[in-house]
Design a protein around this nucleic acid. Structure first.
Lengths: 201, 201
DNA sequence: GAATAAAACGAACGGTCGTGCTATTTTGAT
DNA sequence: ATCAAAATAGCACGACCGTTCGTTTTATTC
């Protein structure tokens, strides 16, 4: 122990692998992710990549974790600088739409949610469900703060509004992937304005 | 020619194969569909199954076509018995929700839309885009009839409303797959009521 | 620089993948 | 019953899959 400094500097390689895995999973989904393609993507041997995670499933779990952290860091954290209430909620949604623009060509989290939606219980599915549940709660919290601030009517159903917002974001991703981002974002913005207006006191 | 009756009675086998492919694709997606698993599912040899379609891609295309036809037959056709306007639109949405209930454990069409969203152009993707586009137009038509009937305000943006409805259905599928159908359908119904009310004259 | 631990490699394993090819069976019309 | 055509089976192929194992290279510590 004593001077037990971090003996693992090859954790940087792990990051590199996860970054590449992220790119691959955007195209082929979580189940389409293969260690062989991943290895040649980072210029390593299959076994070299494999050793970092111990199994394909653990790799997938690590990827899921990494993407989720990235998602929250991109959307929620910057929005926390905005004052509580509608401004913060709008910032979240705005960042979310920007995330959708960047990931119009495939989003790992959305793909995972679709791949594991009705599947039998597995560590992967459990993780996805928890992440989605956590994220939904974050939105509900932002909504609750907007109600407190008087930006929304006191009888606002936060669960319902969170569902409505989330649905529009699904619509954005869906339409952006199939019909192009510009048209999709126009509809999304208009729908969000209508939605927020309908909850105004 | 002359008495050229249908020489192919093994088209029934094709149907059987497609039915099994449908079940498999619900779990593993369109890209997870494999001929080997399909063959053992219907109790045939791989090559026997293969011969019916000529390639995996053609099998996928045939499946996509079959599911799409089933989708429309389940949701749109029965609704056409309802009078034009809001009743018919409501019937469409109601059938759509029932479809979502049945397919809470994986919907092939939704899965395909996610799998091919940002992908490079391929026959599969083109087919998915066309199907989604056609379906969106059907919704817009039903909305336009509702406007004509005076159920919605004359300045109703059919494209926007179609997007809003579609988004809610995506939200239903999403939440039903992850959190259970009951809670998801409650939110969806409430959101639909709010949405329709907001367009009332 | 020697000793030690971490990291990466390379080959091999049993499987499954999609896809050809050639037989064999089954079917439907004569 | 016959015969052509359609349907299915059987087999083999090259490629890739996740995983294991023993070795070799690289990095860290004394």
């Amino acid at each position: 122990m004593s001077t037990a400094t971090t003996p693992a500097k090859g954790a940087a390689t792990r990051e590199l692998i996860l970054e590449q895995a992220y790119q691959l999973a955007r195209h082929d989904g979580m189940e389409g992710l293969s260690i062989g393609a991943l290895a040649s993507g980072v210029g390593m041997s299959k076994s070299g990549v494999f050793a970092h995670f111990g199994s394909r499933e653990d790799l997938q779990l690590a990827l899921l974790e990494a993407v989720s952290a990235r998602f929250v860091a991109f959307i929620l954290h910057p929005a926390l600088k905005q004052p509580r209430g509608l401004p913060r909620l709008r910032a979240i949604v705005e960042n979310w739409m920007e995330w959708g623009r960047i990931h119009a060509t495939g989003c790992v989290l959305l793909g995972a949610a679709t791949e594991y939606d009705g599947r039998a219980d597995s560590p992967l599915r459990e993780r996805v469900v928890k992440q989605q549940s956590d994220w939904r709660n974050e939105i509900k919290r932002a909504i609750a703060l907007a109600v407190e601030a008087g930006d929304f009517r006191p009888d606002t159903d936060a669960t319902l509004l969170a569902f409505e917002i989330y649905s529009l974001m699904l619509g954005l991703h869906h339409d952006a992937g199939l019909f192009g981002f510009d048209q999709a974002s126009r509809c999304t913005r208009a729908a969000l304005d209508r939605l927020f207006a309908s909850y105004r006191p």
